[in-house]
């Protein structure tokens, strides 16, 4: 567990296996939710996550691979594309500049 300051998140990556479908959909909805907070949201294949990311969202089954790609970046696994509670909590923390645990 680590505590992260929501206002320190500037680059958020949504990763999926191929970077073709699933990550695109979540990234596009997060982009809209976080546009006002100066957060760059990008999608990526899990093997190609950029190392300058501040935070990574990925499907639960891919979290280990994501951590392997970027060992120094916090990785948040999610289950649902729409309305995942883990994602919603962090989006709210970033919007409010609160800290959150990963």
């Amino acid at each position: 567990m680590a505590t992260i300051d929501g206002s320190s998140i500037k680059k958020l990556i949504v990763a999926c296996d191929a970077g073709m479908g699933s990550s695109v959909m979540l990234a596009s909805s997060l982009k809209k939710q976080l546009a006002k907070n100066g957060v760059t949201v990008e999608h990526s294949a899990v093997a190609q996550i950029p190392s300058d990311a501040d935070l990574v969202f990925t499907q639960a089954g891919l979290a280990d691979r994501a951590r392997h790609t970027v060992p120094d970046v916090p990785v948040v696994p999610f289950q649902l594309f729409l309305g995942d509670p883990a994602v919603a909590k962090i989006v709210k923390a970033i919007q409010n500049g609160d800290s959150f645990e990963v």
């Binding site: 999926c16 296996d17 191929a18 970077g19 479908g21 699933s22 959909m25 093997a47 594309f81 729409l82």
Partner: peptide, 22 residues
């Protein structure tokens, strides 16, 4: 890809697609 992780995205919709290798 479906065997690894479901492509169900909610609201009665799934988005089947391949893997990076595919």
């Amino acid at each position: 890809r479906e065997n690894t992780i479901s492509t169900f995205v909610g609201e009665g919709v799934a988005i089947p697609h391949g893997t990076l290798a595919g």
